Computed example of a mutant assay.
Amino acid sequence: AAQLAKNAEMDAYLSQLRSLLKEEPCVIKEKLAQLPPPPDTVPGIAPGGRSGEPLQIPSDVTPQSTPVTPQKAPVRPGSMAQLLEQSTVLVLARQPQGLSMGSGFFISRHHVLSNAHVVGNASQAFIINKATGGVLQATVRHRSTAGGQDFALLELSTDVAITPLEFAPGVERTQRVSAWGFPGAVTNDDPKFMALLQGNDSAVPEVVYTEGVVSVILERTPPLVVHTATVSQGNSGGPLVNEQGQVVGINTFIKLDDASYRQSSIAIEGSSITAYLREIGIGFSQAAATPAAAQAQDGKADGQKGVRP
């Protein structure tokens, strides 16, 4: 009977959250702050902000900063999985209510890109994956929420021995994509993540992979890539990549249709990211367009459908 009562409380709470997911992000953020805590939260972890925003970790968890020493340029990983595992990072940032948790990815050997809502107003963040060799401290060098952007640039004091991700020349409907990151729905059950929370700064949670296809590219400002790869809280700031491991977007939020219970995963398109990086003077790598993609872009200029720049 007690368990049934708890289940009913949770169902009611989830119903409120589903209703919120129909709203615009700014409305979600405002109304979510007014909701009471969920009835049965995971011990030690408080609920995060708007849909797609990372979970919040208590303020008494303080990762140890491991000094980064200069490294030789690494050999490029032999597979796409290896490339994404060493370039996708868990991001932790101090907030007034504790540490926020999200994802990010290397765009150079000392720069990591994430969502602005992952780091909030923090001036410092911590990153970790298997390639970093421990928790590393980074400076939040720049962030932007203007004009629908949700970007944060993290800078390390020196290079790390990783191969940064490069940006795809474009993205199109029906293209196969995959999302990489640290979704709370999976990471919360990772023993290494729990060890990290308990102070073991060498414990590295596993990066999570999901795949899908691009459903549509919404012509908004900035353009949004709607795709079917499953993401959840904690994926925010992680890369959405094509079959070559090239970045086509940054996963930022989700929407759930209350009638069909169908989730839409939404990423800000890669062209908006590269425009932002150019604006703030940060270098990045971009793959050359294939002849077919270049022809499609030329066709779009003539009024036909084609690959987005």
Rank of each mutant, 00 (worst) to 15 (best):
A203N: 07
V112F: 08
Q56I: 15
A267I: 01
G181N: 05
T132P: 04
K300H: 12
I273Q: 00
Q34G: 08
G148H: 02
V61R: 02
A146N: 10
E30W: 11
V119Y: 02
Q263F: 10
L197N: 02
K31M: 11
I162H: 01
S264Q: 11
E279N: 13
V119A: 03
G184F: 08
Y261F: 15
P291Y: 08
Q149G: 09
Q95I: 13
L240P: 00
I250P: 00
E172I: 12
I250S: 00
K22F: 11
L256T: 12
E155P: 04
T163L: 08
E269I: 07
T62L: 15
P43Q: 06
V42A: 09
Q82G: 14
A287I: 06
L83W: 04
R76M: 12
C26Y: 15
D11Y: 13
I266G: 00
T221A: 10
A296V: 06
S123R: 14
V75M: 11
T228P: 02
A293S: 14
Q263D: 07
A185P: 00
L136E: 02
E219R: 14
V225C: 01
T62G: 06
D40N: 13
S215V: 11
D201G: 07
Q304H: 14
C26S: 15
L196Y: 06
A5M: 10
L92T: 03
A287D: 01
I250Q: 00
G234F: 07
V27H: 12
A179Y: 02
A2K: 13
P36H: 03
A33T: 06
G98L: 04
V208P: 05
E243Y: 12
K72L: 14
Y13Q: 01
G134Y: 05
D159Q: 09
R278Q: 14
V231S: 09
E24I: 14
K305R: 14
Q64H: 12
R50S: 14
F167R: 02
P77A: 08
L154Y: 05
V118T: 04
S79I: 09
I28K: 10
Q86R: 10
V75P: 04
A81G: 11
E9H: 10
G270I: 03
S232G: 10
Q297G: 07
P63Y: 04
V118E: 01
T66G: 06
V204R: 02
W180N: 04
K6S: 13
T187E: 05
S114C: 08
R109N: 13
F105L: 05
K192S: 13
A93N: 01
V135F: 05
N251D: 10
R173I: 15
T252H: 06
D257A: 04
I273K: 02
S157L: 14
S264E: 11
R220W: 13
Q97L: 14
C26P: 15
G270K: 00
P164W: 07
S51K: 05
T88E: 01
N251M: 11
V68K: 08
A5P: 03
A294W: 09
A185W: 07
A125L: 04
A161D: 03
S271D: 09
D201S: 15
A152Y: 01
I250K: 00
A138Y: 03
T62A: 12
S79W: 05
S178K: 06
G104L: 02
D190T: 06
R173N: 11
A195D: 09
V204G: 00
F151T: 02
V118H: 00
P43L: 08
N188E: 13
F151P: 00
I128R: 03
P58L: 15
K29G: 11
L277D: 00
G44M: 08
L84H: 03
